[in-house]
């Protein structure tokens, strides 16, 4: 740089601004990653639980697919693999809870949440970064274990093409963003409702059912199945699992990925809107 002018006279450089805030979010995400990596006992306990649930569901699927081979477009091995991929996705996308919303809940209880809305850092961006950091850790540690257990205990179908892994990872990232978008909306209900725990427990059951984690959405009948396959929850498990099973390959992967991307964008946008409403409410009522 040849420019020797004092810093304060330099015109603001938008690119430097962007780099700085990206750097900040990256460090928030790294911090969350490191924080979750210190909860060793919790990680182990959660991994055991995922494996147990995976086993139970896998046995029921084996029974169902023995009775009806090739049900829903899956053969027996694919159906079992579907279960284990879902168990790997469950902690990563925090469908069953355990994501950033616990921290937000704590801040609601302490009343710090109103202050958070006024930080110079964007509220949604901060929590998204933090949740991505957590998801990264959970994918690496808690995602791997169920896949390993599943491949040891049952017949397991691994992707045949190497590229599928890349597509799958991208899909998991989008699934996590969609999941964040949904949980962010639920968390913000705390500004209006006393019992946001209740909302969470309801949305949790809905998410489990409509994500396909308990039963693939291709087994849902008629209009219910068609509807469920395009709702945001499908993006959480059904879509990534199908990509892992190579139900779509080549350019055809763009369809499911596009669905995920669309919901991710829509939900983040909706989250911003609700955040603005919450900010206004805090201004009017003083928190």
């Amino acid at each position: 740089m040849l420019n020797a002018a004092p810093a304060e006279t330099r015109p603001p450089d938008p690119r430097a601004d962007l780099t700085a805030s990206l750097g900040l979010y990256a460090s928030v995400a790294r911090g969350a990653f490191r924080r979750y990596s210190t909860y060793r006992a919790a990680t182990l306990a959660g991994t055991v639980t995922n494996t147990v649930f995976g086993c139970i569901l896998a046995y029921t699927f084996v029974a169902l697919w023995r009775a009806r081979p090739d049900l829903g477009g899956y053969d027996l091995d694919q159906a079992v693999t579907f279960i284990w991929v879902c168990q790997a996705l469950m902690p990563t996308t925090a469908i069953f809870g355990g994501g950033f919303e616990n921290d937000v809940q704590t801040r609601f209880r302490s009343g710090d949440i109103a202050v958070d809305l006024y930080r110079p850092v964007d509220f949604q961006g901060w929590w998204l970064a933090s949740d991505l950091g957590r998801a990264g850790y959970h994918l690496l540690v808690r995602g791997g274990a169920p896949l390993l257990a599943g491949s040891l205990l049952f017949h397991f179908r691994l992707p045949e093409r190497p590229l599928t892994w890349l597509v799958f990872l991208l899909s998991v990232l989008l699934a996590e963003v969609v999941s964040f978008g949904l949980r962010f909306l639920v968390a913000l209900t705390g500004f209006w409702l006393h019992d946001s725990d209740g909302v969470r427990s309801v949305t949790l059951v809905v998410a489990m059912f409509l994500s396909g984690m308990l039963l693939p959405l291709t087994l849902f009948p008629g209009w219910l199945g068609e509807l469920a396959r395009v709702l945001p929850w499908a993006a959480l498990a059904q879509v990534p699992a199908d990509l892992f099973l190579e139900h779509a390959t080549g350019p055809a992967v763009l369809g499911p990925l596009g669905l995920q991307l669309g919901w991710a964008a829509a939900l983040i946008g909706a989250g911003r809107g609700v955040q603005a409403l919450a900010t206004r409410k805090v201004v009017v009522q003083g928190g």
């Binding site: 060793r40 006992a41 959660g46 639980t49």
Partner: peptide, 18 residues
């Protein structure tokens, strides 16, 4: 083992499912 809260889910909710 203060953080092991989730472990019991294996036996309670997991058991219930089974």
């Amino acid at each position: 083992w203060g953080e092991a809260e989730e472990l019991q889910n294996s036996f309670t909710y997991g058991g219930g499912l089974m």
